[in-house]
């Protein structure tokens, strides 16, 4: 459950961007399908980690980024569910991962009280 540690990082990153007394209403995240992180586990841990902070009760909006890759042989791009998935067109592997590894806090919405 390293999602607890990640949820704590999310809380710290968001708090560093607001004045004390502000209330953070929403947090937008990008979680890639190949990041090794379960978005639902982040949601579960976030609620607990946000307690007693400017993020208490904030809504978490998770943008799940699909894993995409490019084949080094036939140059086609396609979706992958795992880093070791072969090219669906010519069965080559490894393939070049283009997206899906990210874990980012992209945006927050704040109520300045």
């Amino acid at each position: 459950m390293h999602e607890v540690a990640l949820a704590q990082e999310i809380v710290e990153i968001c708090q560093a961007h607001v004045e004390s007394g502000s209330k953070i209403e929403t947090v937008k995240l990008e979680i890639g399908a190949l990041s090794g992180v379960v978005a639902e586990a982040i949601e579960f841990c976030f609620e607990a980690c946000a307690k007693g902070t400017a993020l208490e009760g904030a809504t978490l909006l998770i943008d799940k980024i699909k894993g995409t890759a490019k084949c080094p042989i036939c140059a086609q791009t396609f979706e992958v569910a795992a880093v070791f998935d072969p090219c669906p067109h010519c069965q080559t592997y490894p393939v070049e991962i283009l997206s899906g590894r990210q874990m980012r806090v992209s945006e927050i919405e704040v109520n300045d009280v």
């Binding site: 990082e9 999310i10 607001v18 995240l29 980012r104 992209s106 945006e107 927050i108 009280v113």
Partner: peptide, 13 residues
């Protein structure tokens, strides 16, 4: 209350 959007774009790690 007016909501303010703040762009963060920071890696969680």
């Amino acid at each position: 209350a007016p909501r303010k959007k703040i762009t963060i774009e920071q890696d969680i790690l």
